[in-house]
Design a protein around this nucleic acid. Sequence first.
DNA 1: TTGTATTTTGATAGCGCTATCACTACCCTG
DNA 2: CAGGGTAGTGATAGCGCTATCAAAATACAA
Lengths: 355, 355
Amino acid sequence: MRVKNTARTERRKGDAVTIHEVARHAGVSPMTVSRVMNSNSNVRDTTRERVMRAVRELNYTPNAAARSLAAAQGTRIALIYTNPSAAYLSELLVGALAGAARSAAQLVLDTWDHMSHAAERVAARKIAQSVAGVILPPPLCESKVVLSELAAAGIPVVAIASGRFQADLSSVRIDDFRASQEMTEHLIAAGHQRIGFIRGHPNQTASALRYEGFQAAMTQAGLAIDPGLIHQGYFTYRSGLEATEKLLSRKAPPTAIFASNDDMAAAAVSVAHRRGLDVPRDLSVVGYDDTPTATTVWPELTTIRQPIAAMAGSAIELLLRGIRLRKDGEARVVSDHVMAHVLIKRDSVAAPRKS
Amino acid sequence: MRVKNTARTERRKGDAVTIHEVARHAGVSPMTVSRVMNSNSNVRDTTRERVMRAVRELNYTPNAAARSLAAAQGTRIALIYTNPSAAYLSELLVGALAGAARSAAQLVLDTWDHMSHAAERVAARKIAQSVAGVILPPPLCESKVVLSELAAAGIPVVAIASGRFQADLSSVRIDDFRASQEMTEHLIAAGHQRIGFIRGHPNQTASALRYEGFQAAMTQAGLAIDPGLIHQGYFTYRSGLEATEKLLSRKAPPTAIFASNDDMAAAAVSVAHRRGLDVPRDLSVVGYDDTPTATTVWPELTTIRQPIAAMAGSAIELLLRGIRLRKDGEARVVSDHVMAHVLIKRDSVAAPRKS
DNA sequence: TTGTATTTTGATAGCGCTATCACTACCCTG
DNA sequence: CAGGGTAGTGATAGCGCTATCAAAATACAA
């Protein structure tokens, strides 16, 4: 209509509805529409209604690029990981990506495998320059070096599945203690008394909590914990293999094994089979995390569902909020999101054979 | 310095270097810098050099948001998958994400599990409206419905790991036939003659090619193929379990098993162990894909490395090129990238016991 | 009622980049 | 050496949105 419009038509593929069209439709200024879209304060209810209706009628979706450009909002977020199990990683990525898309943030990935502390420090400093926030899954979220370097750079950090809440670090996690306790109770309710436990990697808080939950449930049920039935694992299939081997070589082997993650539980199943044991009739096995591994092996594993994808999404939202606040010069806010876990019962648990 | 600058400082957090600073540094106009960054035509070599130097010195990274806003370039790319193995998915995601970041494209994920053809059609139509291009891993890239719907919408599509090249579909893949042939030759060279083969999902071209490669190598070595040693699998752990069970129950069991992917190979190892067989001394097992599964199980699997992450990255570049061309009104170009595979030798193969 | 405080709205000016077109060098042919 | 190309470069004008501040509308006090 105007010269502007002509130019625009010449240039654009011209399909998506813009904020201006919505504004015209609602009889307000674009700025008001913007305010409504950002759930900002100070818009009269009647106006908001009118805008919302227009938005719905035109099926308007804000242009993420324009938004982040105008807001000059540092939208790059780093997700840094070190050799997690593939199953864990893929769920993490899916969730993070979905969250990032929702908030028009750009996600950048980085792997810091086999790094010395010094190398981690350098990497942290470097990443801090190029992104506005960082998401840290374990075990990185327990690294003092990384954390302090990132804090020094002043960029917000959110830990994911970190186990315990630390006063100076925002986190999104589940209640590992409680979950582990519930799982142990489930085993005890099935009739097990001699339960073997394969611990997680010692450098992760979550490992300790899972063990503590196990202990608590055992104690509460009046069952003694035989130190010989507790083995150290490292969250790897291999370590699960070794621990199970030792566990089953005892003269009084456990009737159930609680592994601190699914990979180790899968290993336990494998060892049991190799020894001619039937799972679950001769040995019950339970895992933790509900990664795809849990449903890949046979029988499918009873495990704790940790909503990793949802956690990643929340972590991104939390981070973005932190970034925004920081831009406004507000003090750093530390928050702790505890999400719900679920005990998933599958076919790897049965009552122990009475011997 | 100028009024502009003052305003800018007031508004922005003001850290990232912009194209203007690079331009000033190099003594050219921003437009020229832009051209260099987009490896566009028509920039004198000396000028390009100068700009590149400035870019390097200032450590300039283009702002993705501004870029896609200005270019009005549909930068949203969809990656659609259906229940792949987690290991496969995570590598796919990592590669795609890296590629997307490199090209300032936004990646959107979608899962189309357990969908009827009708549902796929609807989903395809819907996705076609919201993205500028689509990346299709198997088995989706073999779905006529999806492909035709996407073609009708006129958006570029790139198939990944599709097996065979189809004349009307760009693809990034490895030479499955050749790879499978090499693996078979490796087994034969180790002394195996009775080789069991577990086929992949029948709805995927790659499955057929892998089988054909196996056949070719056997025939070439003058070995007969016993139909009883060929079993259908579906790329799942479960199907690998069943196929191996049958294979090892024969009166003359194979001395080696070639599974069409790592998950099924892992299952084969598991069954062998359950039957008290040693891998590789009693039975050699090889897989395909080199997913993390291959190094998770014990012994680690000899397998074919398919560079999934790199393939995903290439797919994105290919797609972006297609999108750009389409915007310029050029005809659709179909291309076929065949990437290199590698035969990875680990510990799951040995010479057969002489019986 | 009038004046002031407060809320609500709009006009303006960019965010950092690229499409477009105009312009300057050159290089050809004849 | 004129006329018509063809690189190579720059000036201009937005892409769709939001920060900022001024203006208008409303609320509240005296």
